[in-house]
Write a protein that binds this DNA or RNA. Structure first.
Length: 233
DNA sequence: GCGACAG
DNA sequence: ATCTTGTCGC
């Protein structure tokens, strides 16, 4: 327990207002590595997943898991129980979730080779979504897989699993709409930092052999919800 | 100006 | 995100 994840979010320097958060994202964007290429999807051995579950009273549970990239079995997991002061503001999700997610990651025994986020990377108003933030912070290749579209344009991918179409913002490519299951709504893949879009797409598809969402996200989601329900006992 | 808006 | 019944389908 206690794996290095790179720099930690500085509690004293953490934005408290919307304006400060936006300014922080503008600086953060410059530090991101959008090319990678990052780990070869066929050579990766471990993949990390993170997610957060919330209670009505503001309590939260952040979960971090590590899966064997071949069997997709969970080989390591960690949770952080805490709270957030930062409200949910579209475009500023990272400032609400990231400190708790980072805490959960520090509780892992094994450092994953790549991390999958539940949300956006550069498919974001300031190209600085949760996956960009986490990738820069940890130094671990990171990308995002979101369930719903925000401000980008895209054409509907073909019906079969593996089909994808580009996500664009003002003509700029910021990710892909990827069909992970035949005839099921696509997910939205975008790079965070330390990995290229081709590898991120291939990995997302490989991590979702049976369901719409990657197993990393499913495992982290289940763990967070379970621990939140057990809380207060 | 108003609404919509990752999770 | 979270709150929720029944319902359709494998």
């Amino acid at each position: 327990m206690g794996v290095r994840i790179g720099a930690e979010p500085d509690a004293d320097d953490w934005p408290a207002t919307e304006a400060e958060a936006v300014a922080a994202q503008d600086r953060l964007r410059e530090a991101a590595d959008l090319v990678g290429p990052g780990p070869d999807p066929d050579q990766v051995r471990t993949v990390g997943g993170v997610d957060v579950a919330y209670a009505d009273d503001g309590d939260l549970v952040a979960a971090a898991v590590v899966l064997d990239a071949t069997t997709l079995a969970v080989v390591d997991e960690s949770v952080h129980v805490g709270r957030t002061d930062f409200p949910y503001i579209p475009g500023l999700l990272a400032f609400r979730e990231l400190p708790s997610v980072a805490a959960a990651l520090r509780g892992l025994s094994h450092r994953p080779e790549v991390i999958v986020c539940d949300g956006y990377g550069v498919a974001h108003p300031r190209r600085a979504g949760l996956a960009v933030h986490l990738g820069v912070l940890t130094g671990i290749p990171c990308f995002g897989v979101a369930k719903t579209p925000f401000l980008f344009d895209y054409a509907e991918p073909e019906r079969q699993r593996g089909a994808w179409t580009p996500l664009t913002i003002d003509g700029e490519q910021v990710g892909r709409a990827l069909r992970t299951q035949d005839g099921v709504k696509p997910v939205f893949v975008s790079v965070g930092s330390g990995i290229g879009l081709d590898n991120a797409t291939a990995l997302a598809l490989r991590l979702a052999p049976d369901y719409r969402q990657p197993e990393t996200t499913r495992a982290a989601d289940h763990l967070a919800r379970q621990r939140l329900a057990e809380r207060a006992v």
